[in-house]
Each structure stands twice: as C-alpha cells, then as structure tokens.
Nucleic acid binder design. Structure first.
Lengths: 112, 112
DNA sequence: TTATATACATAATTTTATTATGTATATAAT
DNA sequence: ATTATATACATAATAAAATTATGTATATAA
C-alpha cells in the first residue's frame, strides 16, 4: 500500500535537508532506511534518486561530506553546511505553503 | 510571492479533476483563472501544462468534452465522465496520504 | 495601433525521478 | 559451497511532467 511516489517529486531535497537538520550527520543508506522507517515502508527512497540529489546538494554547497570506513565498507557521511542550515528553513516554509495551497485547491480544509 | 510550482508536479490532474467534480463543466481558460483566484495569484497554471493534461485525461476516458462558440470564440468545455467521477475519489485520497506522509517526514505535525 | 485579455494548441527544453546496471563486502540460508 | 539478502556507493538510459517559447485568432481598452 505504498504512496504515489510521483507526488514526492520536488520534495526530496527538503526531506534530505530536514533529516540532516535533525541529525548531526547521516550517510546515504541510512537516509533511505530512515525514510522507510518514518513512513512505515510507504515511501521507498531509491538510490537512483537519492545519490544524485546528495551530489547536487553538495555541489550547491548546502552539504558537506566526511568519509569513514566501518566494517570494511565505505560510508560517506553528509552534514549541513552553514548555507544548508539557512536553506532548510526556506525549503520547509515552501513545503508548508505548498501544502496549504494544495489543501485550498482540493477543498481538503473546509471552513466549518 | 508565488509558491514553488515545482512542488505541484503530479498534483495537476487531481486539481483539474477536483475542480470538475465541483463544477458541472469548465473550459481551459476558466480553470487557469479559477486556480489563480483560489490561490490568490500564488499558483499560475500554465497553458503548456494545462492543455496537454486535459488532452491526456480525455484520452484516458476520465473527461468528456463539448464545444461551444461564445462571442465568436471557441470554448472547449470539459466535464467528468463516469470513470472520472470514480477516479477523482482515488486521486484525492492519494493526495491526502501524500500530505500526511510529507508532514510526518518533515516533522510538520509534532506530537503534542 | 498597440497592449491586454480571452481561448486554444504544440514543439523544444529542462528537471526530476525510475529502472537498470555495476562494484564490493558481510552474513544468513540452502 | 553457493545463493540470497543486506549493506554501501555510483551512474547511464529512459520516462514523465512541467516550463518556456511560439503560434493562431478574436475582442476590447489604452
């Protein structure tokens, strides 16, 4: 009973930035599992979407990386840069506005 | 102070179907103006998005059309088919689920 | 006569995600 | 022993949906 992933287009950056604002540092695989856990398996973040998104956010200077080797496997940890800390606030407000407008348009919040 | 249109990707069909479930029939330009009015100018539905979406919904059998000439201009009215009436219920539920998951993921509904 | 509003339509491009594929290690199951 | 699954990264090919730009056409206001 997974949600329609199509609708999440455009929200991925905000989801990543928000998770990193709540956690000092996270690595890619950890992010996919966190999203799965929070949504109880309804939203499965694909690698093909996640990794390019992380690389883009890093290229934009919103994320910083450190690499660690744990149990013989490489982990690339991401954390918010100063700019990232500012941007997450904007992105969250954008999503809040978006939800409000969508509820208006779809009559999901009828005036009582 | 327009919203980030990027986020509305995937919601356009639902917005159209929902408007047509609330109005017997509407034509394209009318839909753009209605969306503009409801969102107080925040969301501007572009023709390049609207018309292909309408054509697709018609091709899928969710919309039916009638053409009228008003003041020497052609208007193509769209209305929900039987299938469209059923589908709008599913689409609305999908958006509701999507909003709920998004609020969960972004911590927008903290448990009090 | 020029700009704006009304009314439709589509082609080229961009963006974002999905699907598929690839590398590599560790562990559980057969 | 071997296969499947989980962990962990990455990227190329493709698909879907929108934006931008362009086009046609009428009516009205500046």
């Amino acid at each position: 009973m997974a949600v329609n992933n199509e609708l999440f287009k455009g929200t991925l950056q905000t989801i990543i930035l928000n998770l990193l604002s709540e956690n000092e540092k996270m690595y890619g695989y950890e992010i996919t599992q966190k999203v799965k856990a929070i949504t109880q398996g309804e939203l499965m973040l694909k690698e093909g979407a996640l990794y390019p998104a992380l690389h883009k956010l890093e290229a934009e200077g919103l994320l910083e990386t450190t690499t660690e080797v744990v149990e013989n496997r490489v982990r690339k940890y991401y954390s918010l840069s100063k700019d990232g800390e500012k941007e997450v606030i904007n992105k969250l407000q954008e999503v809040k506005d978006f939800i409000a407008q969508l509820q208006l348009l779809l009559n999901l919040k009828p005036a009582i």
